[in-house]
Design a protein around this nucleic acid. Structure first.
Lengths: 354, 354
DNA sequence: CTGAAAGCGCTAACAC
DNA sequence: GTGTTAGCGCTTTCAG
């Protein structure tokens, strides 16, 4: 491999000392050097094709200009936009990001966290916090800037960014009620995952607030956030024998699976049962019926996380808010319709919506 | 931030020299040290929570144990599985990967390439080569190990991995012919992108081989690989007025868009027109009609790329094959059916397939 | 078998 | 203004 040109090479060429070259090439320190020398140095640097060695600089300054990003699985379509959001703010500033997939396994997460530390990342965006997860907390306490995304770590000072899950659940529930639904089932996500837990809790809370009868509600708990589980849970609900006219899914894939599962039993969405999702993942407009869902911010979540991390890295924690709640948006499409049993009930407003 | 424990700390604690500690901790050099000393050093390293500083090691050895991966856009669902494939082989070996998105822009690609070089990556997997793209070639000539994925750089010794695009096109074309189709349109991808170009070329070549009448074929060229363009091109084909009974899409999204575009004109797939895709992206089984397509390897493509890169980094280029062609698989689903005009033609075998 | 010493490329006190 | 010097944490000759 052709040897890289270093400061020393430039220094020799121009006939000055390395440190002078270093200063001349530093945008802020270059003002302390005779302009003529600066331009001569810059010219030969350019000509020789000099590229600063960030590794060496990092060793000296203890700043590597790289940040770590931990996600459960990049194959999950929710994450790529988030990553682009992070990259969108960090890359122009000269930061590189190292992305690791934890697969939501504590052991893997721990190992990868150490990988990031060994590489001396300047900070970490952690979007894969497990519910029982002390190790990232230790790292943060040691002084490494950390931001968590989609999840708060209890009893810690680690700034976190979350979606307004409750607003999303409320929007969906209100929408279903507006359509006349009262017998609503929640297709909950895995309870060891934060979103699964948060959304179930919100369902309980908001249902009570909205005055839904507890006896008319039911819960099916999926073991994974995928279509197969959605289908499986929908059929389980059916076998349970208790009537329901709507299913509120904890995410889009569960909802999509539920629609398939119902269809297998001759029950169609939205005519017989309304189904709602959560996330608003890509390709939803290609799948019929088009899913009514809660749109969470993805690109902007990443952007926000990066901006917060930047602040945290700069300030050491001073003016960074502990909590940042990202607004969600209700997206009404085709998978929800007026409750078929509506004629037996007293009519209410808001039905013309769809 | 709590100061990291270094070799020096361990040396002081154990009462030996740093270099001894360095050797004791190196799995291969540790055999040159008294076993008892080794175990004492290892014990205190463990106890002190020592973590090697890869930055410092990298500066010394000129190996950073990180590789760069260049892709067009991580938001494109084709790439995440590829990345997991790469990570799957590299991560267990202690490598970290830095992923950059070029957005298929030469200027961005150039800048990001330099970003990777500045960070001293040990090698690069490049899955975003533009057709006119000398800069990566220079880098490779300088001795940095590079593997290209999905695209060959002409006149270079850079090992490349490609899908068997021609076999895929042949499979689809043969399948359509088996169903009686003769008037086939190719919905080509952007010609500045390698897959777009390769698949169009394969279409021309294979159509001739299979004896299709040139006058019955037509081409529509999309400007982007997305549904909107697919729909737009399908309608353009319709307006052209020349009859066709099947559309062979250059990728799945184009095909999906085409189906929508036809539907908007009251033409349904597969009853009136058969449509095929390419790639077999995720979620295809949730979209109706289920798309007949060519499945390319994704995870394995990444795995192969990483393994080749590893070889290249170790050997300096000796025994690494220049070309690696990955097999594709024909996946027949619901978007293709017997040619509706078949009754006017002579029957042939293979029709019972669907 | 282990210690001493040099040095990777860069930055940052400090001196002149 | 610019040169000198030291050192980030590690590896790797070279001695002993």
């Amino acid at each position: 491999m052709k040897r890289r040109v270093t400061l020393k090479d430039i220094a020799a060429e121009v006939g000055v000392h390395v440190s002078t070259v270093s200063r001349a090439l530093d945008p802020v320190l270059s003002s302390t050097i005779t302009p003529e020398v600066v331009s001569r140095i810059r010219a030969t640097a350019e000509q020789l094709g000099y590229r600063p060695n960030r590794i060496a600089a990092g060793l000296r300054t203890n700043r590597t200009m790289t940040v770590g990003v931990m996600i459960p699985d990049i194959t999950n379509v929710i994450f790529p936009p988030i990553l682009r959001g992070i990259e969108g703010v960090l890359e122009p500033l000269g930061y590189a990001t190292i992305i690791v997939n934890t697969d939501s396994e504590a052991e893997r997460e721990n190992r990868l966290l150490n990988v990031l530390r060994d590489r001396g990342v300047d900070g970490i965006v952690h979007a894969a916090v497990l519910l029982s997860d002390p190790c990232i907390a230790h790292v943060a306490e040691d002084g490494l800037p950390v931001i968590t995304l989609n999840r708060r770590i209890e009893n810690s000072r680690i700034p976190y960014i979350i979606n307004d899950e409750e607003a999303g659940i409320r929007g969906m529930l209100q929408h279903l009620m507006d359509l006349g639904h009262r017998q609503i089932a929640h297709l909950a996500g895995p309870q060891e995952l934060s979103t699964g837990q948060l959304r179930l809790a919100a369902f309980h809370k908001v249902a009570a607030e909205l005055g839904l009868d507890r006896d008319e509600l039911q819960i099916a708990e999926a073991r994974r956030f995928d279509e197969a589980e959605g289908s499986h849970c929908a059929q389980q609900l059916l076998r349970g024998g208790r009537p329901f006219t709507a299913i509120l899914g904890a995410n889009d894939r569960l909802a999509l699976g539920a629609i398939e599962g119902l269809r297998a039993h001759g029950i169609s969405c939205p005519e017989d049962v309304s189904v709602t999702g959560f996330n608003d993942m890509c390709f939803l407009d290609l799948i019929r019926p088009r899913l009514t869902t809660v749109r969470i911010q993805k690109y902007d979540a990443g952007r926000t996380a990066a901006q917060l991390l930047l602040k945290l890295m700069a300030s050491g924690g001073g003016d960074v808010p502990l909590e940042t709640v990202l607004p969600v948006e209700i997206v009404i499409r085709e998978s929800t319709a007026r409750c078929p049993e509506l004629d037996h009930r007293r009519r209410r407003g808001g039905l013309a919506r769809i």
